[in-house]
Simulated scan of single mutants.
Amino acid sequence: MTERQKIILAIVSGLAIVGLVIALLLPSRTVDKNLDFYIQDQNVNNQLEVNEPLKFIVNDSSAVVDKRVLWKMGNGDSIVGNPNISYTYHQAGRYLITLQVDGKVVKEKTIDVVKLTKDTVAVDSVPKIVGPKQGFVGESLVFSADGDGMTSWLWEFGESGTIDAFERQVVYKYDKPGKYLVKLKTNTTLYPVSQVVTILDKVDAVPADMGEEEQAEPQEPIDTLALVQNDIKRRLQAIANAGARDQEAVRSNMGYINDTYLRGNGGRVIVQVNGERYNLFPDYCQGLHYLESNRYSRVSIDDVKVDDFHRITKIEVTQRNIGK
């Protein structure tokens, strides 16, 4: 090898060593394929709400050290420089969140931001019975209470005629076939919430129609607010006055209100009693009948107000107990 060749080889080797050192010293510009982000809401209710501070957090902040991080919030806003950010949306909508690192899109997620009203919160606060709507004699059926703020639970399964359990989740077996009204009373509602369960004999076939019992035929609606409120008041009073065994009066009046004024959507209509506790409409009617119509006293419906004449979502009832 000539002297010139030795010099050229030495130069090339030196450059290679320098390049290797530089590569080792400089941070990598390769984006981690496992990079992701998650969103944390302030009240931790798994619902992203208008005017609620939200946190957008990268799952591995060390993977974006010395890299250019860009958040696109889906509404025209962008935030540069921080792997973890806080952001508040002021309008409800569906937004595409984009995380870019060094100019490359590494993750996109679509979120729904909702606007909650007082009534929406009230509906969400009403406990719900989670459990089967049909079963068989002798089968172990699991029922649980879903909701927030509950500290006490009173379960009635409609077979024994008394309170059957006191836990949030219970297991119950029916001894006889039939339709039973499962009722749950908690500290958060004035009246119990309820659910119908159909119990079949083990030799019975599953009935073709497991829907709710037929309601009374709707009548012509009354077209002024005062008359609507008075008509609902009169129907609720009839439910309160009905005897303990008079289910037909309850079904007829409850069905009339539901079909005529609530557009068949009674299961989503709130009843607020005396400005305090909430119940959904069907549970309020059942509670009004079962709990308040007894031999010693009855309920007087003093006033009824509705929130929207054309689309009722809330009924405010003023009532009191009076002796017979």
Rank of each mutant, 00 (worst) to 15 (best):
R68D: 13
N321C: 15
D77P: 11
L9Q: 10
Q40A: 13
R263Q: 15
L280P: 04
Y284W: 03
E212I: 06
I39W: 14
K67Q: 08
A208T: 07
M150T: 00
L15W: 08
A208L: 13
Y89R: 07
S160F: 04
E220H: 11
R251M: 14
I199K: 11
Q286V: 14
I97L: 09
D307K: 10
V304W: 00
I17L: 12
N46R: 11
N274Q: 04
Q91S: 09
P27H: 00
N241C: 09
D36S: 14
W153Q: 02
E156K: 11
V21I: 05
L99E: 05
V196Q: 15
S152A: 04
P192H: 00
S62Y: 05
I312W: 02
V304L: 01
L25V: 11
I270A: 12
K55Y: 12
K33G: 15
A16Q: 00
S125N: 10
T318E: 13
Q237L: 05
V114F: 08
V193Q: 03
T162H: 11
I270F: 05
P27I: 01
I257P: 12
D66P: 10
L54P: 05
G255T: 03
F309V: 15
V105W: 06
I129S: 05
D102M: 00
E52Y: 03
K305G: 10
F37C: 00
V31I: 07
V18T: 14
F166D: 11
G19E: 04
N258T: 06
A240D: 11
V171E: 14
V50F: 12
N43M: 01
V304K: 01
M73N: 10
Q286I: 15
A92P: 13
Q195Y: 04
M73C: 11
K185H: 03
P53L: 00
M73W: 08
G178E: 04
G131K: 00
L20A: 09
I85M: 09
Y89D: 05
I315W: 03
N253F: 00
G135I: 03
S61R: 15
G287E: 01
V271I: 03
K176E: 04
T162K: 12
P177Y: 03
T186I: 03
A122N: 08
L26R: 04
T110H: 05
E52N: 01
G135A: 06
F166E: 14
K185A: 02
G178I: 10
L99C: 02
Q286G: 08
F309R: 12
A205W: 13
G76F: 12
N279E: 02
S160Q: 09
L54F: 08
K128H: 03
G19Y: 04
W71A: 14
D102Q: 00
N82Y: 06
N46Q: 06
V50S: 13
F143K: 07
S300V: 01
N321G: 14
C285A: 08
E139V: 09
S160C: 02
I222L: 12
G138Q: 02
S61H: 13
V65N: 14
V271F: 01
G135L: 05
I270E: 05
S86E: 12
K202T: 14
T117C: 04
L15Q: 05
R263F: 15
Y296C: 09
D259F: 15
I257L: 02
V250I: 10
K314W: 04
